[in-house]
């Protein structure tokens, strides 16, 4: 079971968190000016990196903050956990 080191609450079991998907998916700032292809890309397409993966988790049974993790999705090792960095598409925490 993952142990996520919440920057606010300290290390907590994975069961306190809820997963929020890839962190490098930035919502287009002006959706109405975004073309279909770019909008579909934001909505649906994912890198699904096999290796280090930047992802969002929410500490729902804690501080309720959305956090940014870099995690190895093969070993499940958590490399870092931090407050969100913006813009999201920037390279990792």
């Amino acid at each position: 079971m993952l142990l996520i080191d919440c920057p606010h609450c300290g290390p907590r079991a994975q069961t306190e968190f809820s997963y929020g998907g890839a962190a490098n998916v930035a919502r287009p700032p002006a959706p109405e000016e975004t073309d279909d292809a770019a909008w579909i890309e934001y909505l649906y397409l994912r890198d699904n990196a096999k290796g280090q993966h930047d992802e969002l988790w929410q500490h729902i049974f804690g501080c309720r903050r959305w956090l940014q993790l870099r995690r190895d999705v093969i070993s499940h090792e958590i490399i870092s956990c931090s407050e969100l960095r913006r813009p999201l598409a920037e390279d990792g925490p």
């Binding site: 809820s18 929020g20 919502r27 969002l56 929410q58 729902i60 309720r64 903050r65 959305w66 969100l84 913006r86 999201l88």
Partner: peptide, 17 residues
Amino acid sequence: AGPVMAHLEFYLQVVWP
């Protein structure tokens, strides 16, 4: 109730901080 709260927190914290 729960999902809406998480949804709003997502937009508030992640998209429009």
